[in-house]
Structure formats: structure tokens, C-alpha cells
């Protein structure tokens, strides 16, 4: 099954899938919280939060990667604390690639969820409250089900972005084959090596296939969820 890709190419693909999967899974609750806060809560730091969420979209990825290194590097206070308390090392590890991908994909995810939330009539939530549902139950039985298409879109967009993340990742965790060499890093490396264009091309095809697959899957899932909501 693996013979159409060489071992190092296969490694890059599986690593990218693993990194993207965890990046989406870990950032989803935070993305939901940030989107909910931005749409439904009135508070002082709303604009600050909005700016922070969008920062990775505007900053050069290399800058984000370097900032991550400064914050979570093995000699940075936060990095030392994480290693001593949880035994968690981020710099130059696949875990760091997860963090970099999650942060870079965060703005896209929040935007998609936010769009979904803005499409939910708050008066439906009010109606649920008048029927006896507490805040938690309103969220669980009305907001969340209605938000499902937005959540799916946000997750898939974030997944695709994470699969393609290059600048912040290579700056923060470098390009170590089998450890931190993701799909884009591998393509970049193969392009530097004479005679490895075939490998690069194969990975380019794989990238296109994964991206298209994710898009189709999200479209189908979101359509199904939307149909369930509108009850067609």
C-alpha cells in the first residue's frame, strides 16, 4: 500500500496528518469560546481579543514562529516551566508543530465559527430560556446543534491550513525528517536536492488530493448538518 510513496515521503504525509488532526482538535474548544465571546458577549477587551485572534493572519509566519521560539523555547521561562511540570517539550518536536499549526489556523477557524454564530437568531435562545432551559442547556440544545455546520466548516478550514503551514513551523520546530518534517517542509527540502523533483511532485499531488478531499468532505458534512437543521 505504501509502495507508491517512498518511506520519507510517507513519513512526511503521516506526520502532517497527525499534526493537523491534533492542531484542530486542541484549538476547536478555544476557537468556539473565542467566537462565542466575540459574538455574544459585551466586554471591554473585545477589540483586543479580536485583534489577537487575527494576529497570526497578518504577521509574517516567520515572525510568529520566532515569537513561539522565544516563548516556548527550551531556555524560555514558559518552555522550562512546561518541561519541568508536564515533561512537555515543544521546540523542535512534533508537539511544537501542532502548536504552530493550531495558532496559524486559529483565525480561519474563529472566523468560520463566528459566521455560523452570527447566523443563529438569539431570539431562539431567548425562547429556549423562557421554556425553562438554563444557560448551559440553551447552549447545549439550541446553540450548539444550530452551529454544527459552522463548526464543521471551521474545523476543515483549519485542518487544510494546518496541512499547508510552513513558515512558522519551520522556524519554530525546524525540518527534521520523521520528527518535524511536515509535507510542505518535505516538498521544500526535495526541491533543494538535485534529482528529487519526482519526490516533490508526488507530495504536491498528495497535498492537492488531501486539500480537495477535505473540501469535499466538509461540503458534504455541512450540507447534511444544514439539512438536518432546516428539516428539508
Amino acid at each position: 500500500m505504501t509502495d507508491w510513496l517512498r518511506a520519507e515521503e510517507w513519513m512526511a504525509l503521516t506526520l502532517s496528518l497527525k499534526v493537523s488532526f491534533w492542531a484542530v482538535l486542541i484549538s476547536l474548544p478555544f476557537g468556539l469560546l473565542a467566537a462565542y465571546a466575540l459574538v455574544r458577549w459585551e466586554f471591554r477587551g473585545r477589540h483586543v481579543l479580536n485583534g489577537l485572534v487575527h494576529l497570526p493572519l497578518i504577521l509574517p509566519p516567520v515572525v510568529t514562529g520566532y515569537l513561539l521560539l522565544l516563548t516556548f523555547g527550551r531556555r524560555a521561562p514558559l518552555g522550562i516551566w512546561l518541561e519541568e511540570t508536564f515533561g512537555l517539550v515543544l521546540a523542535f518536536r512534533w508537539t511544537g508543530a501542532v502548536l504552530a499549526a493550531a495558532i496559524m489556523a486559529f483565525p480561519l477557524m474563529v472566523r468560520a465559527i463566528r459566521l455560523g454564530l452570527e447566523g443563529i437568531d438569539p431570539r431562539l435562545e431567548e425562547a429556549a430560556a423562557t421554556l425553562g432551559a438554563s444557560r448551559f442547556w440553551v447552549f447545549a440544545t439550541v446553540t450548539l446543534p444550530l452551529l454544527l455546520p459552522g463548526l464543521i466548516t471551521g474545523a476543515v478550514l483549519a485542518f487544510a491550513k494546518a496541512m499547508g503551514e510552513f513558515g512558522a513551523t519551520i522556524t519554530f520546530v525546524s525540518n527534521i525528517p520523521g520528527q518535524t518534517q511536515t509535507l510542505p517542509s518535505a516538498i521544500y527540502t526535495f526541491l533543494q536536492v538535485p534529482g528529487a523533483e519526482a519526490s516533490a511532485l508526488r507530495l504536491v499531488m498528495v497535498s492537492i488530493l488531501v486539500a480537495m478531499g477535505a473540501l469535499v468532505a466538509s461540503e458534504l458534512l455541512a450540507r447534511r448538518a444544514a439539512k438536518r437543521i432546516s428539516g428539508g
Partner: peptide, 21 residues
């Protein structure tokens, strides 16, 4: 709070939950 008042409200625009039967 709203949910503890136990008043059955009917609004002009119905406000049925679209995702439920």
C-alpha cells in the same frame, strides 16, 4: 432568571427550533 420564571411565552414570530421536529 428567565428560565426560573416558568412563563410560557408565545412570540409573534413563533420561534420554533428549526433543528427539532
Amino acid at each position: 432568571p428567565v428560565h426560573k420564571r416558568r412563563l410560557g411565552c408565545v412570540f409573534q414570530d413563533g420561534r420554533l427550533f428549526p433543528h427539532l421536529s
